[in-house]
Design a protein around this nucleic acid. Structure first.
Lengths: 330, 330
DNA sequence: CTGTTAGCGCTTTCAT
DNA sequence: ATGAAAGCGCTAACAG
């Protein structure tokens, strides 16, 4: 059995060179003669040597780690973004350290401490509640999705949620709906509030009454919110949910009440998570380009780490028409 | 603006003590006089000092990091397990480093190298394709879910998939179904194969023809597999999918074909992911206790790291009856 | 081109 | 109880 973790010194001894030379060979930091290169490589091979990132980090002051702070590993929205993002980072020397904030501000703060301690070279925020307060003196680039971050090294990827929500509401109105409920949430960040704003704007412009209920951005909350919606507004003909999970919850409530979708009630979601296309009926929803978002964040991260200014990607929120909306009275 | 990362030396200077004493105070490694303790604590506070895990790791040879290797951050099954697991680890000094293998063996191998390099003290495998081969000389405890690992420091959490699949098939047969298709997959690990075995056993015992098609354990594959199933076996009355995502895909196919669930075709899934209860109709499926699995893995991890042998948790796979199955001809 | 020498920030003997 | 000193594994000047 070979030693668990041979050190650079052992490699050097075996190759008959100095540790510095081994380092040079492995990092390509300087020219080394053919024969020594070969000797080193062979020794590395034989010993199964792999440099310790700990030691490297300590010596160089660089960690090549980037922190990713997200609300929740279980989220069908952020999970796939994280997946795309890590995939995008694969080809770089940077390694993501993903930590969940579990929807709690204190946990997010702890997670932030953890990442700071690990000397991450940049930070990506995915739908957290963190604000400038906590991020103030971080001194590293901070990228964010779904929330705005400020500062010299900050970069946020923000899509126009308000406009998209406005258009989704208009879409329902164009199909004859006037009694439209929006299921919003106090949870979540700025983007959720912007959706509410967009809805309100559309309703106001059309001279319609804004009907808003609140969920928790998960299925259960959507179910309860739908129940509340129909208790308060029994004549509702359309539900516009702040995210797809909420829409799924609402959908179940309607089903249990014997209300058909879309015959009796139309339903629109937001996000277009993977499962939305597989709902019965397939859910009409505002598509967030999840994979592209992950990729864009990855690219931006690379740019920022290279000292460049990321070019804002052209990403749009678009309504994808499926089968959960019907013309009123049709 | 305070310095980004004050070192222990600066704290020591400010507190008028030696670095060693600061270390002792912070780690409780030895008795230190009241006054010095106070001085150190104050200096730490004022400087906003946080020890560098890198340096600590280097000095102690311990990393307090545990590696978690999973197939995919986007998975609605492994994502929530990961969430529960990390939550369970929260109260311990150990920090999870989660890396996705992106369903590719080479990537998993790379991820493994990465974790090894980071000196993780234990490894958790969530549905990977890694076998003893690669794990052989790891020298650290390896825990696994959904696959069996061997070795002196290995521990696997395996539920009886075969039995559960057997029972699910019997459940369909008890309701008059005889033409039952199982949608399996070549992807995935041992557990998926065991489900297939359980299905086959039930069919064989009942003298029925085994009808098996294959998907990819995701929605799209389920859709295609369902199409194939009905092409090859048009008289099928029930579909038993190897996981819920597959069932969702199949469900969409049925919907598009005008086949009603459960009136025309009954559908059973496996996993009981969060969304299954919110399908229309709610999906009858074999429940894997996702959260309990995550917690059990977390506990086992703590036990293993404490040098103990984890007590196998009592976790069962149980069929949860919802609305996607109907008595044949009813 | 290559070996020697200093650290990186922390813990841990070893003295005192 | 506490400081000095050595060392964890590696890289980066600095001499040759």
């Amino acid at each position: 059995m070979t030693k668990a973790h041979p050190t650079i010194a052992e490699v050097a001894r075996r190759a008959g060179v100095s540790p510095a030379t081994v380092s040079r060979v492995l990092n390509g930091t300087a020219r080394v003669s053919q024969e020594k290169v070969r000797a080193v490589l062979q020794a590395v091979e034989e010993l199964g040597y792999a440099p310790s990132p700990l030691a490297q980090g300590l010596a160089t002051g660089r960690s090549y780690a980037v922190g990713i702070l997200l609300s929740d590993f279980a989220s069908p929205f952020f999970g796939p973004i994280l997946e795309a993002l890590t995939l995008e980072l694969e080809a770089t020397p940077y390694r993501p350290i993903a930590v969940p904030g579990h929807w709690s501000l204190v946990r997010e703060l702890e997670a932030l401490e953890f990442l700071k301690a690990h000397r991450v070279e940049a930070l990506v925020l995915l739908g957290t509640a963190l604000d400038g307060e906590a991020l103030g003196e971080l001194g590293i680039p901070v990228l964010a999705f779904g929330q705005r971050v400020e500062g010299p090294k900050a970069w946020s990827l923000c899509l126009d949620n308000q406009k998209a929500a406005y258009e989704a509401t208009r879409y329902l109105m164009d199909r004859g709906h006037t009694r439209i409920v929006h299921v919003s949430s106090h949870r979540g960040g700025m983007d959720v509030r912007e959706r509410l704003l967009g809805y309100r704007k559309a309703m106001r412009e059309a001279g319609l009454e804004a009907r808003v209920v609140y969920g928790d951005l998960e299925e259960e909350g959507g179910y309860r919110a739908a129940a509340e919606a129909f208790r308060r507004y029994p004549d509702t003909t359309a539900l516009f949910a702040a995210n797809d999970q909420t829409a799924f919850g609402a959908r179940l409530y309607l089903y249990e009440q014997g209300l058909r979708v879309p015959e009796d009630v139309s339903l629109v979601g937001f996000d277009d998570i993977a499962l939305s296309a597989y709902q019965i009926p397939p859910l009409t929803t505002v598509r967030q380009p999840i994979q592209e978002i992950g990729i864009a964040l990855g690219r931006a991260l690379r740019a920022v780490l290279a000292g460049e200014v990321p070019t804002p990607p052209r990403l749009e929120l678009t309504l994808v028409e499926r089968a959960s909306v019907r013309e009123v009275g049709a």
